Amino acid sequence: MHLPVLSTSHLVLRPIEDKDTAALFRHFSKDAVTKYMDIDSFSNISEASHIIQFFRESLEKEEGMRWAITFKEKEEELLGTCGYHKISKVHFKAEIGYDLHPDYWGKGIMKEAISAMLSYGYEELQYNRIEAFVDPENIASSKLLSSLGFRYEGFLRDAFFEKGKFVNAELYSLLRQEHTRESIF
């Protein structure tokens, strides 16, 4: 599977590379970034190397893909990441995940990045359904998905075991016929 570069009016979504190791470490060592994720905050730079390798292996196995989110004029500066995981070709669906450095929260960056990712998923990968699982306390993520047209499908009790405890989740989805190109910046 190939991971293309995706461009929007302000952003470039590009493959994560070894040169991103230090930036990924700084990013994922922030508790604010990993608070609602299924990973602990990084405490060692080797964890960043391992996650890059994990992203590569997921792509090779056609199970997932992850982009670095950057500004067009500063492609070396990592703002966050986004991508697909739990890809199911047989069911024409995938789950999305995303994270953004706190300095860029509330600026529309993630909406722009995910809009590009959704268009790629529906148009190029031929997904019919894209899902997202959200911690019920992560109000910003729920609002983001709603603004992109995702529908709330339900509350899942003790859906995941993360960081030593069971956590609830909200399930959101967006079907191909519900996605509009107007959501792209």
Rank of each mutant, 00 (worst) to 15 (best):
L174V: 12
K143E: 13
L79M: 10
I130E: 05
N168K: 03
S147R: 07
E60W: 02
Y98Q: 03
N44K: 03
K165L: 03
L24V: 04
Y152H: 13
F42V: 13
R14E: 08
Y172D: 02
L6G: 10
H10K: 11
T34Y: 04
Y122F: 14
G121Y: 09
G164A: 14
I16W: 02
K61I: 14
A116E: 06
L78N: 04
Y127G: 00
L145Q: 01
N128I: 05
I45G: 10
G83C: 11
Y98I: 06
A132R: 07
F54G: 09
R56Y: 08
I69F: 11
I69K: 11
L59E: 07
E124I: 13
K86H: 03
S46T: 12
S115V: 02
I51K: 12
I109M: 03
D135V: 07
Y120E: 07
F155I: 03
F71P: 09
L174C: 06
K143Q: 15
F25P: 09
D158Q: 14
F185Q: 12
K86P: 00
G149Q: 02
T34E: 02
E170H: 06
L100A: 11
E170M: 12
P4D: 07
D18Y: 15
A68K: 11
E170C: 15
K86N: 09
R176M: 05
R157S: 04
P136D: 09
L78D: 15
G97P: 01
L3D: 08
L156P: 00
E63W: 14
M1K: 01
S58Y: 13
V167H: 06
L13K: 01
Y120G: 05
K19R: 15
A113W: 04
K107F: 00
D40I: 00
K89M: 01
A116K: 08
F161D: 10
D103H: 00
N168Y: 01
T180Q: 10
E124L: 13
L171A: 14
G108F: 01
I51L: 11
A169W: 15
M117N: 04
M117Q: 08
Y152K: 10
R157A: 14
A23E: 14
S58H: 07
R66S: 13
C82H: 08
E178H: 07
E73K: 14
F166Y: 15
L100I: 03
A169C: 14
Y104P: 00
M65S: 13
Y98V: 04
G80A: 06
R26I: 10
A132I: 05
K93T: 06
H91K: 12
E17G: 07
D40K: 05
Y84Q: 02
R56G: 01
K111Q: 10
A159P: 03
G83I: 01
S183H: 03
S147T: 09
T180L: 06
C82F: 07
S115T: 01
L79R: 07
R14D: 12
G80S: 13
R129M: 02
T180E: 12
F71M: 15
F185R: 10
S58L: 10
E131K: 00
L24Q: 01
K35Y: 13
L144W: 10
D99P: 06
I139A: 06
Y120I: 00
G154Q: 09
T8R: 04
R151W: 02
K74P: 00
V12M: 07
A48P: 04
D135H: 13
F54I: 09
M37S: 08
Y122R: 02
I139H: 11
M110H: 00
E178L: 09
A113R: 06
F161G: 02
T8S: 07
S46A: 14
L13F: 09
